[in-house]
Simulated scan of single mutants.
Amino acid sequence: MKPHHRFVLALSGALLISALPAGAASLTEQYEALRAAQPRLALRDAAAKLNVSEAELLAANGIGKTVTRLQEGENVPREIMRRALDLGKVMALTRNENGVLERTGVATRMKPQEVVTGLDADKEKEREARMRNIAGGYLGGEIDLRFTFKNWKYAFAVAQPGKDGVIARSLQFFDQYGNAAHKVYVRSEAGVPVFDKIVADFRNPVQSADLKVASASAKPAPKPDSAVDVKEFQQAWNEINDVHQFNRLLSEFGVTREQGLRLGPADKVRRIDPLAVRQLLEQAAKRQIDIMAFLGNDATIQIFSGKINKVQETGGYFNVLDPEFNLHLRDTNFVSGYVVKRAGVVNVEFYDKDGREVVSFFGVRSREQPVPQAWIDLTATLPTAGASRQASN
Rank of each mutant, 00 (worst) to 15 (best):
P205F: 04
D225Y: 09
V194N: 01
A221S: 14
I291H: 03
E189D: 14
W237S: 07
Q235G: 14
D273H: 08
G260F: 05
L295K: 00
I240E: 03
L295A: 00
G296T: 00
A209T: 13
G191V: 08
A227F: 07
A221P: 02
F246E: 01
V192F: 01
Q207L: 05
A284F: 06
I240G: 02
R270I: 11
A209H: 09
V206D: 13
Q245L: 10
V228K: 02
R257A: 01
A227T: 04
K286E: 15
L249T: 09
L211Q: 10
S188V: 07
A266H: 11
D225I: 10
H244I: 08
Q259G: 04
A284V: 08
V269H: 06
S251E: 12
E282H: 11
A236L: 12
V228T: 10
N204L: 08
Q283L: 11
V277I: 10
N238H: 14
P193F: 02
K286G: 05
S217L: 15
Q207K: 10
A266P: 03
P220R: 12
D273L: 10
V243F: 12
L249G: 02
S188G: 11
L280M: 11
M292N: 00
G264C: 06
L280G: 09
K212E: 13
R270M: 09
R257T: 02
S208M: 04
A266L: 11
R262D: 13
S305N: 14
S226H: 11
L275H: 11
F253Y: 15
R278F: 01
E239H: 13
Q259P: 02
Q288Y: 03
Q283W: 06
K286N: 13
N241S: 14
A216G: 01
D196M: 00
N241K: 15
D210F: 04
P222R: 06
L211K: 08
K212G: 15
A227E: 14
A285F: 05
